[in-house]
Every structure is written in structure tokens, then in C-alpha cells.
Simulated scan of single mutants.
Amino acid sequence: MSDPIQLGLVGLGTIARNQHLPSLAEVPALRLAAIASRHAGHDTLPSYHDIDEMLAKSPDLQAISLCTPPQGRFAQAVAAITAGKHVMLEKPPGASVSEVEGLARLARAKGVTLFATWHSREAAAVEEARALLTSAAIRRVTITWKEDVRHWHPGQEWIWEPGGLGVFDPGINALSILTRILPEPVHPVAAHLEVPQNKQAPIAAKLDMQTASGAPVEAEFDWRQTGPQTWDIRVESDGPEVLLREGGAKLFVGGAERIAAEDREYRRLYVRFAELIAAGESDVDLAPLQLVADAFLLGAQSRVEAFHDDP
């Protein structure tokens, strides 16, 4: 057995505490050895103000996981890669497509692993859905992705700023599943974005896409849904209908439930990161981020009522 890879975690917000920390504790190939966060520290691990201090004072780190907002993450990733560290990027991998492409080039030049993660692709039913659709002739896809932003992102202003994606922050999870399970690529043809009067990113969006063979793909994203949340992808083809529910945790085929499993997405991501490092490989699939970028390029915008954390 080889020694575990020494990993530093940058960013200690809600997603890091709820997902990254418990998942890392279950992956023997990785050992969390340091934390960098401007607003929090860890009770038992060395904690630094930022990635530069962490890299300077914990030179034995071999890998870095970046859990910070996408704005500003490029500089953090460049610092880590330049220092010879393997890097894992929380989704979305960056604030733009071109900056992540630049990181991929730098990682290749430095001979380190870069892993642009899409946690929803690791949901329990996604790979089974992909297998079912491998040879299917797609006729229509319908995505309904609606949740309550006040529940999932309370007080997080960065999501409303340029580069924060707005409702596409959860919506990109659906697009990551879509681009994984369909047997052919898709491209947007039209989009409509609803932007609150006091924000710079959409609170709701409709995205019309097509597969390469012309099948319609319709997506509706909304951050204003209260009560039960909706994360569904329905695929109609020449075979049985494939329906992913609860973000890919459940699979229905022809109306019958086939898979229902607990959330293990981030544990699978870290296992994959360790495997990529061992193999000397990278995984940087930017298809979901490109679809979001295209939605902003094509999107007609309308202003809607102002949004406030306190309704």
C-alpha cells in the first residue's frame, strides 16, 4: 500500500463542510492535511488565510482541492499547478470556458493532474441511464430543475455577480448529466433569462437545445421554488422512457423504478481524483460550462422583481 496523497482544501464554506470533509474521510487514498480559508479554520488541521500561505508553509502537499467561488479561482489554480500540485476544481470549474482551457494547458505543461468535477454525474443512476441510451434514437428531452435559492445559498452574493452563473449554478448540474447520458452532442438554439432588478445573474431561465440529429431538448431552471424541490430529466427515444429524478439519485425506466440510492457523489469524485493522479491523467470536460456560456450568448433577457434573501 502506498502512502496516501497529502491534500489541501481551499475554501471551508457550506459545501466543503457538508460534502468535501466527510467524503475525504472515507477515501483512504487521500489524506486531508491542511485548510485554507479567509473566514474559517479547522479544529485539528493546520489552517491558513489563503492558498499562497498554505503552499508556502505546507510544501509537502501533493494535491489541492478548490472549493471557492468560481470568480478568482483561476489565480488559485495557477498558483497550485505552478507549485507542482495536482488540482481538483469544484463545479463550475471556472468563471469562463477559456480560463479553464488555460488551466488545462498549464497542467499538461507542468505534468500534473487537473480534474474539473461535475458531482451530479456521480449520482447513483446516471451511468445506468447512459448505458440504456447508448444506442437509442433520441426523440425529445425535457429538463425541469427548480429549487429554493434561499435554502441552498443563503446570503451568498457571489452567485448573483458576473461569473457566479445565477440559476445556472444548479442548472449546470442538469447539463452535466445531460451531456453524460446522451449518445450525441447538444447545442443551444435559444434562451430566455429572467434577471432580478437588483442582480446581475438570472433567477430563472429557459433553454432550448437540439441534439446533433435535431431532437428537441428543453430545459427550465428556476430558483424560486419552495417546498419539495424538482430535479428531473426525462428522455424519450425509440426505447422505453428514461426518467432521472432527484438529481440522478433515482431512475425510472418505462415508468418503473429501477434505482434509488443515497448520495455518494463527492466520495466518488475523490476516488476518481486519486485514480487520475495515480494514472498521470487529467479529466477536463467543459461541455456543461460551454452550454451555459452559449445560453448567456443567445439569451434574451427580461427584468423581473428584485430578489432579497428575506422574503
Rank of each mutant, 00 (worst) to 15 (best):
G13C: 04
G13P: 08
G13T: 01
T14I: 14
I15E: 03
I15T: 12
A16C: 11
A16Q: 08
R17F: 06
N18I: 07
Q19R: 09
H20S: 14
H20V: 09
H20G: 13
L21Y: 14
L21P: 06
S23N: 13
S23R: 09
L24T: 07
L24A: 06
A25I: 12
A25H: 06
E26K: 15
E26R: 13
E26D: 12
E26W: 08
P28G: 10
P28E: 07
A29G: 02
A29E: 12
A29D: 15
L30F: 15
L30T: 09
R31S: 15
R31N: 11
R31W: 13
A34R: 07
A34V: 13
S37L: 15
R38D: 04
R38T: 02
H39T: 14
G41E: 12
G41W: 01
H42C: 01
D43S: 11
T44G: 15
T44R: 12
T44Q: 11
T44N: 15
L45E: 14
L45Q: 07
P46Y: 13
H49R: 08
H49I: 05
D50E: 03
D50G: 04
I51Q: 00
I51D: 00
I51K: 00
I51E: 00
D52K: 15
D52Q: 12
E53S: 15
A56S: 08
K57W: 05
K57G: 11
P59S: 13
P59G: 13
L61Y: 05
L61H: 03
L61K: 05
Q62N: 08
Q62H: 02
A63M: 01
A63E: 01
A63Y: 00
I64F: 13
I64A: 06
S65C: 14
L66V: 00
L66Y: 00
C67E: 03
C67W: 07
C67M: 09
T68H: 01
P69W: 06
P70C: 15
Q71E: 14
Q71C: 08
Q71R: 10
G72S: 09
G72K: 15
A75C: 07
A75V: 02
Q76N: 04
Q76E: 04
A77S: 05
A77P: 02
A77Y: 04
A79Q: 02
A80V: 10
I81D: 02
I81S: 01
A83W: 01
G84N: 06
G84P: 02
K85M: 03
H86S: 01
H86W: 05
V87L: 01
M88N: 03
K91T: 08
P93S: 09
G94Y: 11
S96Y: 11
V97F: 15
S98Q: 09
E99D: 08
E99C: 05
G102P: 02
A104P: 01
A104Q: 05
R105F: 11
R108I: 02
G111W: 04
G111C: 15
V112A: 03
T113P: 01
T113L: 04
F115E: 00
A116D: 10
A116P: 09
T117R: 02
W118Q: 14
W118V: 03
W118A: 10
H119D: 09
H119F: 12
H119L: 13
H119W: 09
H119G: 02
R121V: 06
E122D: 06
E122F: 08
E122T: 12
E122H: 08
A123P: 05
A123D: 13
E127Q: 12
E127C: 06
A129I: 06
R130T: 07
R130H: 11
